[in-house]
Design a protein around this nucleic acid. Sequence first.
DNA 1: CCACACGCAGTAAACGTTTACGGCAGTTGA
DNA 2: TCAACTGCCGTAAACGTTTACTGCGTGTGG
Lengths: 345, 345
Amino acid sequence: MADGPTITTIAERAGVSIASVSRVLNGLPTRQETVRKVMAAADELGYVRNAVARSLKSRRTHQVAFAMADVGNPAYLAMLRQIQPVLKAAGYRLVLHSTDAVVADEIDVLHSLGERYVDGLIMSPLRVTEAHLEMLAAARAPVVIIGSVPEGTRVDNVRADSRTGVRLAVDHLYSLGRRRIAMVNGPLDTVPGASRGEAYREALRDLGVPYDEDLVQIGDFYRAEGGRAVAELLARVPDVDALLCANDLIALGALDVLRAAGRRVPDDVAVVGMDDTDLAAASWPALTSVSLGSAERGKAAAELLLERLQGGDREPRLVTVPPRLVIRASTAGEPAETTDERERA
Amino acid sequence: MADGPTITTIAERAGVSIASVSRVLNGLPTRQETVRKVMAAADELGYVRNAVARSLKSRRTHQVAFAMADVGNPAYLAMLRQIQPVLKAAGYRLVLHSTDAVVADEIDVLHSLGERYVDGLIMSPLRVTEAHLEMLAAARAPVVIIGSVPEGTRVDNVRADSRTGVRLAVDHLYSLGRRRIAMVNGPLDTVPGASRGEAYREALRDLGVPYDEDLVQIGDFYRAEGGRAVAELLARVPDVDALLCANDLIALGALDVLRAAGRRVPDDVAVVGMDDTDLAAASWPALTSVSLGSAERGKAAAELLLERLQGGDREPRLVTVPPRLVIRASTAGEPAETTDERERA
DNA sequence: CCACACGCAGTAAACGTTTACGGCAGTTGA
DNA sequence: TCAACTGCCGTAAACGTTTACTGCGTGTGG
C-alpha cells in the first residue's frame, strides 16, 4: 500500500515532461515514439490515474448521488435497479444516500451538493417542504426529483400518478361486483397517504357509490400495522368485500389477518395493494397491485439527469409515469402466473 | 449555478489570509475576532467546503465502495441495508457497484481502487479467481471480502457457513420424519451450488440415509427455473416428501408447482429455502429458510473495514457467521407469525 | 537564403484546499 | 534594555492533474 506512481514518476522514467505524459494518457496527438515510452513506463509502474486530482482540475467527478428515504424499501430499490445501469453505462459512479425520511437529512444532502463531490443528484423525498424548495433553487448541481413538486418549481421532475392508480383499483373492484370497498391507508400527513385517501373518495363518488367513513381505516405503512388495521376494520364492518391497501406491505398484513379469520381471498374479500413490489408476486394468493412505475420512474430520472449533465441548459421537464393495474389472484380468482424475476444464490 | 465562493473569496471579504480562513473552518486555535469575521463572511457567501480539493490534500475521500454481483439480488440488498447505516454513522459516503457477476467487472473495481476515489472497499464476489487474488494482494486501499477466499489470503474476510446451513435443514426435515428428502440445486459450477450440493450429500450420509441420485435436481437460481426443476422431479420421484431448495426463489417456484399439482405443503411435501430473504416471510405458506446471515455479514464487513480505516495495521481477520434455521409454515404446519419488517409507501 | 508555418514537447499556472514555517507585536524576566 | 518567549497570522508550498502558452527544429514557398 505504498504511495503509488504519479505522472511525475512516469515522466522521469520515460524522460519526458509531465505534460507529455498527460497528453498521452488522454489520447491527445503525440509522436509515436513518445507514446511508446510513456505507455511502457506507465505499464511497468502500474500507474492508475488519480481520480481526485483529475476531478479538481476538470471540475467533474463522474459521480452521481441517489438519495432515497430508506434503503430497506422495495419501491426505492426498484428505482435503484434501473438507475444503476443507466449511470454505469454513461461512466458515472453511484453514491447512495439513505435519509430515513428525515427532512433535515434530505436538506443536508442538498446542501452537500455544494461540496461538489458529485456532478448531479436524483432525490426522492417523502415530502417537499419550503426548505427543500429553497435549497433546490440554490442547488449548485443538476437535480432530478422523483415525486411531486409544486407547480412552477424549476427542477426536472418525475412523478407517479397515484390518483389515477387508486381509480384503476377502485374501478377494477367495482367491475368485479364489489360494493363494500374499504381503504386501508397510511398516515394522512404523508404525501402518499393524503393523495391516495382523496383519490379513493373521488373514485367512489364518480362511480356513484356513497362514501362510508366506516370503510376507511388508518394505520401505518408496515405489514404488522396493516394487519392490525384490517382486524379492526373487519370487526367494525363485517360485510366488507374488498380492500384497497395503500401499499403492498399493508396488503400482505391484510392477507395474514383474512386468512386467520377464515375469509377466503378473493371469494369473500378481494385485496389490492400498491407499488407492485416483488412481494406482491411472491405472496399467496399473489397480490393484485397498482404499479406506480417505480422502475420506470427511476429510469426516467436517470435519463433526465444524464441529459442535463451532458447537454447544457434546457427548460426543466416534467415526466409523468402512468400507473398500471397488475391483476393477480387476490382479485381475479385465477392462480398467478410465475414471474421471471431474477435472483442469484 | 455560478461558481461558488472559495476560501479565497472569504479571505478577501474578511480581510484575512486563506490560511486563517482554513484554520477557522477547521476549528484550529484562532483569535475570537478573526473567527467572527471569517464566520460572518462564510455565512454571507453561503460557502461550502470543496470536498474534492480537500480530499486531494488530505488523501482521504470519506467514501467507501460496496461491490456486489447484482443490485437486484435480495441477499445483497440485505447486506447493503446493514452496511449503509454503519458507514453513514462514521461519516463515510457509500459508492455502489453492480458487477453483474462478471469477473472482468470485479477486477475492474479492484483496479479502480488505485484511482483513490474511495478509502476502502467491501466486495462480495460470486467466485474468486487467480486474478482476484493478485489484485487483492496489490490493492492500494483496505478491502474486505464477503464470501470465502483461499486459506492464507491476506485480506479481511467475512464468510457464511452454507455447509452447516444445509445440515441444519436436512436434520430438521429428518426430525420431522421425512425420509425422501430431495435437493433442488443451482448450477454446480457456482460456488454456492457446489458447496450446498456436497453438504447435502454429507448430511444424509451422517444420518444414515442412503444417497439417491434421483432425488437431486439441477436447475438455476430463479423462480421459474426452480419451478420447472421441481416439476421434473415430481414426475420422476412421486414419493418425495421434502424439498431442500438452494435458495428462496427456487423454493417459491417449488411452492407454485406443488400447489398446481395439488400437493399440500407441508403435509405432503415440506419445503425449505435458503438465504431467508424477505420473500420467504411473504410467501404462503411462509417459507422455512436457512438464513446465511446476509445482514450480519454486511454489518461485520462494514465494521471490519471501519476498524482498518481508523485504526492502523493489524493482522487480517476472518469472521464466520453461523447459519440459522428459520422455521415457518412450509415445514412446521403452523401459520407463520407476522414479521415486523419495515416498509414505507 | 529568408520568412513562415507546423508539429511537437516543455514550462508553468491553475483547480481549492491544508499546513509547515517564519515574522511580527506584545509580554516577561534578567 | 535586550533576549527570549508567546500568540496570531500571513506566505508559500504541496496534493496530482490538465492545459494555455511558448519555443524549438524542420520543412516549404517565395
